[in-house]
Computed example of a mutant assay.
Amino acid sequence: MARGLFKRRQKIKQPKAAFDEQLLQSLNAAKIDWDRAKQNEKAIYDNNTSELVTQTALARVKYLYLYREARLRQVHGSQIQRSVIDK
Rank of each mutant, 00 (worst) to 15 (best):
D46E: 14
L52E: 08
N48L: 02
D33P: 00
Q14F: 13
K16H: 00
I32E: 15
A43M: 05
F19K: 12
Q55F: 10
E51Y: 10
I44D: 06
L66Q: 01
Q55M: 10
T56M: 07
T49Q: 11
R8P: 08
I44R: 05
P15W: 01
E51F: 10
L23C: 02
A37W: 05
S26F: 03
T49E: 12
Y65R: 02
Q10F: 06
D20S: 15
R36E: 15
N40S: 07
A43C: 03
R9M: 04
D33A: 15
A37V: 05
Q10N: 07
A57W: 04
S26C: 08
L27T: 04
V53R: 05
K42N: 06
N48V: 00
R9S: 04
A43D: 13
P15E: 02
N28R: 11
V61E: 10
D46Q: 12
L27Y: 03
L52N: 13
I44G: 01
K11Q: 15
A18N: 07
N47A: 04
L24S: 15
R36Y: 11
L23E: 00
I12P: 13
D35A: 05
D20E: 15
N48W: 03
S26T: 01
R9W: 03
E41R: 07
S50W: 03
L64M: 07
E21Y: 07
P15T: 01
D33Y: 06
L24G: 14
Q14T: 12
I32C: 09
A29N: 03
Q14D: 02
R60L: 11
T56G: 05
A57Y: 05
F19Y: 12
I32G: 09
K31W: 13
K13Y: 06
K38F: 02
I12Y: 13
A29Q: 09
T54P: 00
A30G: 01
K13R: 09
D46A: 13
E41I: 05
K31T: 06
Q10M: 08
A17V: 12
Q14M: 14
K13L: 13
L24P: 01
I44F: 04
A18D: 15
Y45A: 11
